[in-house]
Design a protein around this nucleic acid. Structure first.
Ligand SMILES: Nc1ccn([C@H]2C[C@H](O)[C@@H](COP(=O)(O)OP(=O)(O)OP(=O)(O)O)O2)c(=O)n1
Ligand SMILES: [Mg+2]
Ligand SMILES: [Mg+2]
Length: 1103
DNA sequence: ATCCTCCCCTAC
DNA sequence: TAAGGTAGGGGAGGAT
């Protein structure tokens, strides 16, 4: 298989110093001021902005003049097209310019999202393209052959087939010349306006006729809606197309177990679809669905075209959604089992005793069928399946088939039509998700009763480690469990017993249905010898096929291949897995469900869009769903991946009704620095991602949004509070110094430092120690300093009243707790009675609101919270903790404040952060580890605009230190360096430092123009430095440097650049600078950029 | 080396 | 008609 990635070209655009390349990002458009930037209006750069406006206008006039001169005979096929060429191209940039010039188009020397309509770029490596994509604000990035082909065809071809994407082999084909169907949003003014209406998809958009067929009235899906009356399920026999034909009822089911059914706590609405909590019969659910019944349209809608509430309705009926989200409901039901730290302790010393282990695997037989026929014993020997539809020609999928049905070849996943063909008498039952949920709950209650090491696999399946279960033989235990399951649920389960998880699972397979099987260690080899490899968990159809091509069909044959060969052919891990599994080896341990690492929602059925509005509406619903699920799980996420299924070229309407058919899977992701569950933020991010696909929405067959880099909300709260406090304490203790220089070495040891417990108190179960530590802390605050553990907050007398007052009330409250409530008095004393600011001071409001009371519980929560995150990453041996705490007192001095710092920006509450005094905020950010700083390059998740703090812009000369490490790379030129860079050997470093120096000299008197002029005077010979054009070039160039420096992929406006320079001038190191840019510029950028360009909706053709 | 993104594969 | 979701593991290839 050839890789789809481009590995070519990406280098070549870098190395040639003097070549005629440009890189995106010249951002000096006259129209780049947006209303949301009003706070920058008064900056000294605004004058230069108008200067540049004028300058650019002149350049365009020149171009127009040139174009007029040289055009004439030719057809102006490029009218309305304005290209910007990025990097090396074939044909060359010059040639392209010629084409544009001659054929009615426009060629922009510098990128502006307002004037440029298309970015022209050759094939690049994946990552380069991605940068470009983000960078281009949704403008199409098109290969140069679009131009030359259009010239050859003497008409403007659709650029869509020429889009540059990740696929290196995606060269434009000849057929692209003729495929005019694919048009695109931003093209429609030029090419597509009329074609759009030719599409016969309108037919699909007509309302469904109002006839209510019986099947719609008695639609099986009504059952899932959880109506208050007991649901009546009616299976239908083969010759019936309607649910009403036969009248076997499951009613008794609900009645019998009524007591059990309504036992769940009501959950707060709104629901994230049905994923977390609504497969029960709680009143909430009933109410919700009856609302639906009232409000909802009478006919079932089945596509995004017709159902405005498609996402929610879809998930309510989706079996895969049900089983896919079951795990999260289990987590909610047994939160104590998901703590991660619990089952770990036994892991270390267990690896040696793998021989003696006894593992049980339990799996319900044909689960969905068993449940819905559990009170119909007469059906147990008839072929039965669960499916949405009984249509003998239908494309609904069989979810589960019972064993009689499997004898006919009926399997989960096949179409009901095919199933009926295989087995004409097949009885179809509708789904009853609520019943599955109940039975699953009973199932797990039983398992937990018999064993405390239970690893849930799915709603009908689990592993038990019964090595330590005493007194009972494994086989007997299995029988007991199976009998109990049958008695309680009316459904059979099968059990496999073996020495490891792999063999136990295989044993279950052999045991089914309604049986149990023990595979003794000495039988393993024999058992595996002839076993088809497909039977091994982890080998699906793809691996099976790959192995079959090597004539490997059984585990015995697989064993003949060396581990090296397998690893070479299938990868390190997969190869090892194959090698181990074929020998019955499996070292995995039965453990609790881990914290989830990602969360998402996707819909790949019924997705049909007629226009952008459709798709945006759908996307926003999907975002809401995801946001609700995040909230439901109590997590925030930092990384967002949008997945799109795009109809493959040439693929028509799929065989499966409303299915996605043959699709290309595309995904783009973005990582933001602050974790969120906020729907508004998520929508903004998603729309930006969506826009970057540049798709014809009519080709979209599926959309999914996945969130990763999850962070637990409770942890976050605690960590944020704690960090804020620690930071503050540290800063406060040095408040008298000129700068907030947080090197602990500056302080007296053991006096001013704060407690550093995070490394040591890393396990949840040591809450006691955490608590006692708090106690110590409180004592210390009373003045009893202990030299042995250097963990006291600074004495009251060291605190700065002003800073105290500037704290948010919550922070102050916590702090007050630390000082045993003495802070309030202290403030009152220090402040005297000179002022009375009850209404504005957080201190005052704290006093009023909280009465100065202590919150011991808060404190222990606060103290024990921080460690957990660390635990996951690097579990420290517990034994180290107490001794380590003392011994590390010295180390701590060296480690300094870094130790206290959040390892992640997202552990900081953005709101708290912004309420903190500026210097303090800076300190926090300044300490972030490098890998988090990198993420500052991404900006979509940041909130609305941030005012630049007043103090930042009026720079005093004492503030200024040259940012000496501001060196991009003296040899790496960005884009096209101005001619004088070459000529006079001006290095990037010199340029930036001179610029900063000049800022210093001119102070607030300088505007960009004068600063640039002066800078150039220093770098170039006087006669050259005064050249008007060079100043322009220099500005463009420096802007480019700056953007590379801060890795900003979105254009900066003048004002933003101005802020960047101010920051550059103010801070001494790159990290400080970056963090300030992030704080003051990025957040401001995103809102407006996405607002205007999210989804590339309104790309103006003319400036 | 280690990270990241964009996939693909697998299981229920 | 029909409800092809969800999450983890892992590999390839690129950036650092
Ligand atoms: N492609 C699939 C696979 C499974 N399921 C659902 C229905 C099953 O009943 C349930 C459990 O999956 P199993 O793999 O355990 O299959 P069964 O329990 O139905 O059969 P078996 O007796 O083989 O376990 O998940 C589904 O809807 N679609
Ligand atoms: Mg099963
Ligand atoms: Mg199962």
């Amino acid at each position: 298989m050839s890789s789809k990635r481009s590995r070519s070209d990406s280098k070549s655009s870098k190395n040639s110093k003097g070549s005629k390349q440009k890189t995106l990002g010249m951002a000096w458009g006259a129209n780049s001021l947006s209303a949301s930037r009003s706070s920058f209006r008064s900056s000294p750069f605004s004058s230069f902005g108008s200067y540049m406006t004028e300058k650019n206008r002149k350049l365009r006039d020149q171009f127009d003049a040139e174009a007029t001169r040289s055009s004439g005979s030719c057809k102006p096929i490029f009218r309305g097209v304005s290209i910007f060429v990025d990097g090396l191209t074939i044909p060359s940039s010059q040639e392209l310019k010629g084409y544009m010039l001659n054929l009615g188009g426009r060629f922009e020397n510098y990128f502006s999202r307002h004037r440029v309509t298309h970015i022209i770029c050759s094939n690049l490596a994946d990552t380069k393209v991605r940068n470009l994509r983000t960078f281009s604000c949704g403008l199409p990035v098109v290969k140069p052959s679009w131009i030359s082909d259009s010239v050859a065809a003497n008409r403007l071809l659709s650029w869509v087939p020429y889009q540059l994407d990740q696929h290196a082999n995606n060269q434009p084909r000849l057929s692209a010349f003729f495929s005019q169907k694919s048009t695109q949003i931003s093209d429609d003014l030029m090419v597509a306006a009329s074609e759009e209406n030719l599409n016969p998809s309108l037919k699909g958009g007509t309302p469904r006729s109002g006839n209510l067929s019986p099947s719609q009235v008695r639609n099986p899906t009504d059952n899932q809606l959880g109506e208050s009356e007991p649901s009546i399920e009616e299976p239908s026999s083969s010759n019936s197309g309607r649910w009403s034909k036969t009248t076997i009822s499951e009613t008794s089911d609900s009645e019998i177990e009524d007591g059990n059914i309504i036992r769940k706590k009501l959950q707060a609405s709104p629901h994230p679809s049905a994923s977390i909590s609504s497969y029960s019969l709680g009143k909430q659910t009933v109410k919700r669905s009856s609302n639906l019944a009232l409000v909802g349209p009478p006919n079932q809608r089945h596509s995004t075209l017709e159902d405005s509430n498609f996402v929610e309705n879809y998930f309510k009926s989706s079996r895969l959604h049900f089983i896919g989200t079951w795990r999260n409901r289990y987590r909610k039901r047994f939160p104590s089992l998901c703590n991660e730290s619990r089952c770990r302790s036994s892991n270390l010393n267990d690896s040696d005793s793998s021989q003696k282990k006894k593992i049980i695997h339990v799996d319900m037989d044909c689960f969905f069928v068993s449940v819905v026929i559990r009170h119909h014993p007469e059906l147990h020997d008839k072929p039965v399946a669960v499916c949405h539809s009984d249509n003998p020609k239908g494309t609904a999928e069989i979810s589960s088939a019972n064993y009689p049905a499997r004898d006919y070849g009926v399997r989960a996943g096949i179409f009901v039509g095919d199933a009926k063909a295989l087995c004409p008498h097949l009885i179809i039952f509708p789904y009853n998700f609520q019943a599955y949920e109940e039975v699953a709950d009973q199932f797990y209650d039983i398992l937990h009763k018999h064993c405390n090491k239970v690893q849930a696999v799915s709603c009908d399946e689990a592993f038990l480690d019964i090595t330590d279960v005493e007194g009972v033989d494994a086989e007997n235990l299995a029988s007991t469990i199976r009998k109990e399951i049958l008695d309680t649920t009316g459904c059979t389960a099968s059990v496999g017993i073996a020495g490891n998880m792999l063999m136990a699972r295989l044993a279950t397979r052999a045991a089914k249905p309604d049986g149990q099987c023990y595979i003794a260690p000495e039988k393993v080899d024999e058992y595996l010898q002839e076993l088809p490899i497909k039977t091994l968990p982890g080998i699906g159809h793809v691996l099976e096929e790959k192995l079959r091509k090597r004539n490997i069909c059984t585990c015995g044959q697989l064993r003949l291949i060396s581990k090296d060969t397998l690893q070479r052919d299938f990868g390190t891990k997969t190869g090892e897995m194959l090698w181990n599994y074929s020998r019955g080896l499996d070292s995995r341990l039965v453990g609790v469900i881990q914290e989830s690492k990602s969360l998402g929602a996707e819909v790949n059925w019924g997705v049909r869009f007629k226009d952008l509005q459709d798709s945006h509406y759908f996307l926003s619903n999907l975002c809401k769903e995801v946001s609700l699920r995040l909230q439901g799980c109590g997590v925030h996420g930092r990384s967002f991946t949008l997945k799109i299924k795009k109809r493959k070229e040439g693929a028509g309407e799929p065989a499966k009704f409303m299915g996605c058919g043959d699709c290309e899977n595309l995904s783009h992701s973005i990582t933001v620095p602050i974790a969120t569950d906020d729907n508004v933020v998520i929508e903004r991010i998603s729309k930006q991602l969506f826009g970057s696909f540049n798709l014809d929405v009519k080709d979209i067959r599926g959309v999914g949004l996945q969130v990763s880099k999850l962070e637990n909300v409770d942890d976050l709260k605690q960590v944020r509070e704690r960090n804020a406090l620690r930071l503050w304490l540290t800063s406060a203790s040095t408040a008298g110094e000129e700068q907030y220089n947080n090197k602990v070495g500056n302080k007296g040891m053991g006096e001013a430092d704060v407690e550093v417990p995070s490394v040591n108190r890393n396990l949840g179960q040591f809450a006691d120690q955490a608590g006692s530590s708090v106690g110590r802390n409180n004592n210390l605050s009373g003045g009893e300093a202990s030299s042995s553990n250097a963990s006291a907050p600074p004495p009251l007398s060291h605190l700065d009243v002003g800073v105290l007052q500037s704290l948010p009330s919550e922070v102050f409250s916590e702090l007050n707790d630390i000082y045993g409530g003495k802070l309030v008095d202290f403030i009152a004393q220090r402040k005297g009675h000179s002022e009375n600011c009850i209404n504005s001071s957080p201190v005052a409001s704290h006093v009023r609101d909280d009465g100065g009371g202590l919150h011991a519980s808060d404190m222990s929560r606060l103290s024990s919270g921080l460690g957990e995150k660390n635990t996951g990453d690097e579990a420290q041996p517990v034994a180290v903790s107490e001794a380590g705490l003392c011994n590390q007192a010295l180390d701590r001095v060296d480690l300094g404040v870094t130790d206290l710092m959040p390892s992640s920006l997202s552990q900081i509450d953005a709101l708290v952060l912004h309420q903190l005094p500026e210097e303090l905020r800076f300190d926090i950010l300044q300490q972030l580890p490098a890998h988090r700083r990198q993420e500052l390059t991404s900006n979509a998740g940041l909130g609305s605009s941030t005012e630049i703090p007043q103090g930042l812009l009026d720079v005093k000369s004492t503030d200024i230190k040259l940012p000496i490490d501001v060196v991009v790379d003296s040899n790496l030129w960005v884009g096209t360096p101005p001619m004088w860079v070459e000529k006079f050997k001006v290095s990037n470093c010199l340029l930036l430092n001179t610029l900063a120096e000049t800022y210093y000299e001119l102070g607030s008197n300088g505007n960009l123009s004068s600063i640039m002029q002066r800078t150039l005077c220093k770098c170039l010979p006087p006669q050259d430095a005064s050249d008007d054009g060079w100043i322009d070039e220099a500005m463009f160039y420096i802007c480019e440097l700056l953007k590379q420096y801060i890795k900003l992929k979105i254009e900066l406006d003048l004002e933003e650049i101005y802020v960047c320079f101010c920051l550059l001038r103010r801070f001494t190191t790159k990290s400080e600078f970056l963090l300030q840019v992030y704080n003051n510029v990025f957040s401001h950028l995103q809102a407006s950029v996405v607002e205007t360009y999210g989804g590339n909706l309104h790309i103006p053709l003319h400036g």
